[in-house]
Amino acid sequence: MQFKLIINGKTLKGEITLEAVDAAEAEKKFKQYANDNGIDGEWTYDDATKTFTVTE
């Protein structure tokens, strides 16, 4: 399945997509990506659109 991450950071904004088996795997990958890029914020997930959002 394809999942999307919307980044609303203080210095980094944008979207990325990835393939994952389920939402838990996608969340783990997205949070690792955010951590690697210094993004720390409030996370939400919309199951209907398979979209994660992180807002700093």
Results as ranks from 00 to 15, higher is better:
T44G: 15
T17S: 13
A24W: 14
I39T: 03
E56W: 12
D40K: 14
K10E: 04
K10H: 15
T53A: 13
T53C: 04
A23K: 04
D40Q: 10
K31R: 09
T44K: 12
K50P: 01
A23V: 13
A34M: 05
I39P: 02
K31Y: 05
K28F: 10
A24H: 10
D40Y: 12
E42G: 11
G41M: 02
A34F: 03
I6Y: 10
E27D: 13
T11N: 12
T49E: 06
D46N: 10
A34T: 08
A23I: 12
F3Q: 00
F52E: 00
E25V: 13
T44C: 06
I16V: 15
N8P: 03
W43L: 04
N37S: 09
A34Q: 02
V54R: 01
F3D: 00
A48N: 15
D22C: 03
T51A: 03
T11G: 08
K31A: 05
A20Q: 03
D36K: 15
K4F: 06
K13P: 10
N8Y: 10
F52I: 01
K10T: 06
Q2P: 08
N8C: 06
T53P: 00
I7N: 01
F3W: 14
G9A: 13
K13F: 07
G41H: 01
A48W: 08
N8S: 11
N35W: 13
K29C: 04
K50V: 05
I39R: 01
T53S: 15
T11W: 07
T55W: 11
I7V: 07
A23C: 04
Y45K: 02
Y33V: 13
M1I: 12
D40L: 11
K28E: 07
N35E: 14
G38V: 07
D40G: 14
T55C: 04
W43H: 01
E15F: 12
I7Q: 02
I6W: 10
K31L: 08
Q2I: 05
M1V: 11
I39F: 10
T55Y: 05
A20N: 03
E27M: 13
T44S: 10
E19S: 12
I7L: 05
D36E: 12
E42A: 12
E27A: 15
G9Y: 10
D22A: 07
W43Q: 01
I6E: 06
W43N: 00
L5E: 00
N35K: 10
F30R: 00
T44L: 11
A34S: 08
F52G: 00
L5N: 01
E25H: 12
T55G: 10
D40V: 11
A48D: 08
T51Q: 06
G38M: 10
F52V: 01
I39Y: 06
G14R: 14
I7A: 02
D22T: 14
Y33R: 03
T55R: 14
E25G: 08
K28P: 03
I39V: 08
A34R: 02
D46C: 05
K4S: 07
F30N: 00
F30K: 00
Y45Q: 02
M1Q: 12
N37C: 03
T17V: 15
Y33Q: 03
A20Y: 04
K4L: 11
T44Q: 12
N37P: 01
F30P: 00
K50W: 11
T44V: 15
L18S: 08
V21T: 07
Y45H: 02
Q32A: 12
G41N: 01
E19C: 05
